[in-house]
Design a protein around this nucleic acid. Structure first.
Lengths: 250, 250
DNA sequence: TTAATAGTGTCTATTAGACAATATATT
DNA sequence: AATATATTGTCTAATAGACACTATTAA
């Protein structure tokens, strides 16, 4: 039994299968100056040279998928793999037979969030990379990256509802107003400050107070705000629902 | 420009990349005799001969991912690709470097639901296939399928909360009690009949009445029940939350 | 006749959201 | 002094969930 399995593996010839490749592509969001930004790269070589695309590349031979995604992100932004506050989750896999003209390529897309990600550095392949505000992004990206980005945005928007993800977009210590700015930026609509405040504090484990306050009040007046850090909740219950969800139900 | 892109493609040699393969594996759930069942196959050949596994296989050269998943399911169950009430969604991709001893294999897992799926037929490769009640499933499956199945179950459980997925587990016309049985089966806990009834009817677009009733009352008494069919909602709002969610938040 | 079930009524606690009020900062 | 902001208070409508009740049907 064990022998036959060993024999099988010794005689196994992978090359008789049609060649396919697997890449990871990363939808990386950060917030800069009150706007949601996505990391894009301009392709340096064919195919689709000079088009904007999501950062990504082939998965290394001995590399795990999340490791590959973190590496691709690090190559563009210099963010260390182990960046403490980086959130990385799998978004989905895109494998339409004609999505890449070179060969059959399956792309495993990842979604990344972090506060204050640094300005992009030139990648190893010297391609241009930039943080692009979502409302100024090119209408179409290379390959099917337009779809992937749209899916990533939708995932981010709904993840804010039931997960404490928003705390990944702010500093380690933050005010309720900081957190509200994240929701308003990603959801694209204003929230009622008072109700939001009370709601956040009412969700168990979402945030915990530090006892400290900001050094100064708001830029244009107002008292100092209490500082909080992320709590231990993995799921927000009850959830913070998008105001526009109601109509988007069908 | 166009020329250089054409040149590039003509000279592109896929074989210089290390060989990888992409498979689809399907977590197919159905409800039989009040129990949640999953479709498993017993592996006919190496590696891991005779172990139970999720149905799946290599993605065809010109095949889309959802098409491949539907085909794999059809090969085991005879369910036509276009089965009207089959729900199929991508669950995630599993690509740990050592998950398959033969070579680097990435598996794109799909989640499938349908009512009354037929008894498995022998697949083309003559392997044994069976519907297995979830509480009698083998402790470990081949490869990383134990993990994939666990992820699929978790996805199914939470999808019932905010999507009208439960209507895919019942006949086209169903009673509120039929629907409640789905929730109780997948969530594994009893629900209050009266409150569930009112709740379902209060969610816009979840179900719509047909005007008809069942021919007979319940097996052990009770009035005839009104019949409903699935409504047009894509999202349940407000959601039906699992009773045990509250504690599972951290 | 007994028991099970469908469907509805009622009550309470919780929550969402509109709106207001107060105190504390900034310019 | 004028204005912006953080935080808390109040009120109303909607909702979840516990419990009870009625009508209908099978055995």
């Amino acid at each position: 039994m064990a022998d036959s399995e060993a024999d099988f593996l010794a005689n196994y010839d992978p090359s008789r299968y049609p060649p396919v490749a697997v890449t990871v592509d990363v939808v990386a969001f950060t917030i800069r100056e009150g706007r949601l930004n996505v990391l894009l790269v301009r392709r340096a070589g064919p195919p689709m040279r000079d088009m904007w695309a999501l950062p990504g590349g082939f998965v290394g031979e001995w590399e795990d998928l999340p490791t590959a995604a973190a590496r691709e992100l690090a190559e563009e932004t210099g963010v260390a793999n182990a960046h403490r506050r980086l959130h990385l989750e799998q978004l989905g896999t895109y494998g339409a037979p004609d999505r890449d003209p070179r060969m059959r390529v399956f792309s495993v897309a990842y979604l990344a969030f972090a506060p204050h990600l640094p300005d992009p550095v030139s990648g190893t392949d010297a391609r241009e990379a930039a943080w692009v505000p979502m409302d100024e992004r090119p209408e179409t990206l290379a390959f099917d990256h337009t779809t992937i980005l749209a899916d990533g945005l939708e995932r981010a928007r709904s993840k804010l509802e039931y997960s404490p993800l928003a705390t990944r977009f702010v500093d380690e210590e933050f005010t309720i107003a900081d957190l509200r700015a994240v929701y308003e930026t990603v959801w694209g609509e204003p929230l009622h400050a008072g109700n939001f405040h009370r709601k956040v504090l009412s969700v168990p484990g979402f945030v915990e107070g530090t006892g400290a306050t900001t050094e100064r009040g708001g830029a244009r007046g107002g008292p100092r705000a209490k500082l909080y850090r992320a709590g231990d909740a993995q799921l927000l219950h009850p959830a913070l629902l998008m105001p526009s969800r109601e109509e988007a139900v069908r």
